[in-house]
Design a binder for these strands. Structure first.
Lengths: 210, 210, 210, 210
DNA sequence: GATGAATGAGCGTTCATTCAT
DNA sequence: TATGAATGAACGCTCATTCAT
């Protein structure tokens, strides 16, 4: 079955990515075997290795790919929004919405495991540092700065600290949610978190009255 | 005679716990071998299995033990504090202080890995659920309720939500910190987080005045 | 039409032989993969299997072909030489000359590996036995007998023993040379070996005079 | 079954060495599996790895050990012999005697395969170079020099060339023998080779007469 | 009790071979 | 005819666990 279209190969690879994500989420990276992944993808062990150099390479490139993908989707969402405040609100809405699916919780579990592993895997460290550190935090940081410049946010807040905290809170909530499961009132939690952060950064209109 | 023997056994076991924690933090649970642990503890593989039924049992009971220990230390700290607000402040101080040591970051890494694993290990789920859910969150929840009753905190806040968020934030920050390492401005982050939460729960006397 | 096709096929096959020889010499038979060979030949794995039934079949037929080829070249060289002594001298000259090229050392390595493998591969055993035993040794043996009949060589020498030793010495030197590499003074070794053998078989005219 | 005597371990290791040698000779290094070796030694795969870091390490250390062992046995044989000529004769006798056993032919096959592999295995190259180059050839070279000094051997011969050729001839004969098997008249071959070499190096008494 | 030798299931990875296109 | 995707048996190596001493 040779000479196969690039599109076909793309789909094969995507299917392996998806299977890997599923299995990593269910059993963890280390406990997932190549057989698990290929069985889930309905292919053979051998074929796996024409797409990926090793299990580790799959892991890194999977996380890299998903992280990039999420990032560009976030950036996409911001295109039509001009207000910094609205952008922050949009972020919370997106996470609130995403959190509904089991697939999402699965992804979160994989992501966190990847993070915790990352200090021990050189290439993972790169992904975490360059993607998370630079891009994710940078994105929020820029929004905050924009909000400060536009007079929406307080001048005294530190954009970097808020950006870091934003992701720390999101990840903390997601982690708890992914562990606790259905019983976790994630909607109420996201709502309260949004309030806390907005309180912290927004110039409060009621203060004007006083 | 049995007294001495028991004491000796207790120390052996404590030493194995300590070694396990060290290794788990450095290499991860799965990558740590029994040999790693016993070598670090200067004992033999055989002895290990007189103390623990399996590697998994060690894992669970280690985490159980540490979680209990931390919990009682926290409760201890609260004994001399009567105000709810001060208790919350004390919590932040404790975490800020602890974060300084590498040993602590190591523990955080193990803890988070344990959490992420927990949905896949029945006994781990129990520990996480009963210890974290019930005790950790319950402890904060009770403080909040006390604060509400004492007129320190707003009536409209949900104690459970705040308690959950408190741990979610702490864990999120710690996770990022343990991954990012030295460059993470954890003190500034803890400070800002404390402000956000206090803002959210405290009845603000100064606003009334203004 | 079939002529052109056949010619094309012949060239393809020759190219595969050449690539195989190169790779076998560099990495060894077992460590050479079909991919190595086809990549070096710029063809596909599929095509390989239209020319050869298996990797082993290629190995056998490659060695068979090269052995035959070498044999006929040797015989060719003898056509214009009538004296047995000159023929033996020519043999040494040929090997001395050949030894200069890296390509040749490569071939020697492959040949020796093939020999050592041969007791374990039925078909290889055939090639070694029928080609080497019968033809190579036979060729020398006949030259020796001719020399004896012509009064050039001593009557008491055993043609078979000398023929076998001739190849044993050549192979021994070549093997050491192929392992030791550039530092091996192969020319001096060939020269001394020729002297030893000539001394052993030649009727020494000068001794009579003295 | 712990706390086992050093002697016991020594025997275990020796048994693994012996099994490995047997299997390598029969199937070749690459085709021999760890299971082959441990099955022959009646142990388990796991135990193998407490004695050897890897299959390759076993290979190298096996060859190193055998080479050293042979070398010291040769040196031992020379202790009671003072004449250089007698030493050379002793060498031929030893090889003639050894050649009788199938075990010996097996060893030769392994040795030659090791040599041919050696350019591709860094550690093997070391063993071949330092043991063969330095010790084996050096040993013969020194005997030749002694013979020259004692007036037994011709002054014009090059000790190094003769030493190298000695081993080249031995290895060439052994290689052919190990391939051809029972039908190879090794005794006649060794006898003729000894004559050739002796002729080449000895000062001939009959020349004195003339 | 304390040790560490012994076991073997299990996993990542390779590669000769097949065959649909 | 030519390609290279697909397969899966096989192998090197690891490691939790057992148990003889």
């Amino acid at each position: 079955m040779p000479k196969v279209s690039d599109d076909y190969k793309e789909r094969k690879k995507a299917s392996l990515y998806e299977s890997a994500l599923k299995c990593f989420g269910e059993k963890g990276y280390q406990s997932t075997t190549i057989d698990d992944i290929t069985a889930h993808s309905q292919t053979s062990k051998g074929l796996f290795y024409t797409y990926f150099k090793s299990k580790e390479e799959l892991y890194i490139s999977l996380m890299d790919e998903r992280t990039n993908h999420t990032l560009s989707r976030l950036n996409e969402s911001f295109k039509t929004i001009s207000s910094a405040k609205e952008k922050v609100h949009e972020l919370f809405s997106l996470y609130k919405k995403a959190s509904l699916t089991e697939e999402w919780r699965n992804f979160i579990r994989v992501q966190i495991e990847f993070w915790v592993h990352s200090p021990r895997l050189e290439r993972a460290r790169d992904v975490v540092t360059s993607r998370y550190e630079d891009l994710y935090t940078g994105m929020i940081s820029r929004i905050i700065e924009d909000g400060k410049a536009a007079g929406e946010f307080k001048q005294e807040i530190h954009a970097d600290v808020v950006a870091n905290l934003f992701w720390a809170f999101i990840d903390g909530i997601c982690m708890h949610y992914s562990v606790v499961g259905e019983n976790y009132a994630y909607e109420a939690h996201f709502k309260a978190t949004e309030e806390m952060i907005m309180n912290y950064i927004l110039i409060q209109p009621e203060k004007q009255k006083a």
